[in-house]
């Protein structure tokens, strides 16, 4: 008799635990379901949106030229944002997406120009300016350090006359 009761009690406990566990698990699952947002015609999760924004902040809006793709109100920038988001959702890497844009629009689409032979002068200009400045400084100093020519006898006589 007692064994039967024990079995029943165990079964009840077990099913309760199972039920609780299941409920907990589904609760967790509900918590883990990412909230989807819609930006520029694409549904994506918050981390995906963050990634898309990071990419868009590296790209130039070609219509307004000094705005990023993320900030611009231009139609083309909006389209770019849609393309970036669609590719982010597809799981493409940031580099891959940026390369897609550069392939079609050239390096002008990048707000930060890459270091390539074509941009050597651009990236080297601060160093160049520094070198020119240093050169001017050295020249000026050298000139200043030149010994002053001593007075000739006539000048010495005149100086003596003035001092008296």
């Amino acid at each position: 008799m007692r064994a039967v009761w024990r079995r029943v009690a165990l079964a009840i406990l077990f099913s309760l635990a199972l039920g609780f566990g299941l409920a907990h698990a589904t609760g967790m699952a509900a918590q883990n379901t990412p909230t989807m947002i819609r930006r520029d015609g694409v549904n994506l999760t918050l981390p995906q949106e963050r990634r898309a924004e990071a990419i868009g902040n590296h790209l130039r809006c070609l219509v307004c030229q000094n705005e990023t793709v993320e900030n611009s109100q231009a139609g083309l920038a909006k389209q770019f944002r849609g393309i970036i988001r669609r590719r982010v959702v597809r799981g493409e890497s940031n580099q891959h997406i940026i390369a897609f844009m550069v392939h079609r629009y050239g390096i002008f689409v990048l707000l930060k120009p890459p270091l390539i032979p074509l941009t050597m002068l651009l990236w080297g200009s601060p160093i160049l300016a520094l070198l020119i400045g240093l050169g001017v400084l050295v020249l000026a100093r050298r000139r200043r350090e030149k010994p002053v020519a001593s007075l000739d006898p006539a000048e010495q006589a005149r100086l003596k006359e003035l001092l008296q």
């Binding site: 219509v63 083309l76 393309i83 629009y105």
Partner: peptide, 12 residues
């Protein structure tokens, strides 16, 4: 959609 245009590098 303008997607072919972007594939051609169009900006306007």
């Amino acid at each position: 959609t303008g997607r072919t245009a972007i594939n051609w590098g169009l900006y306007g």
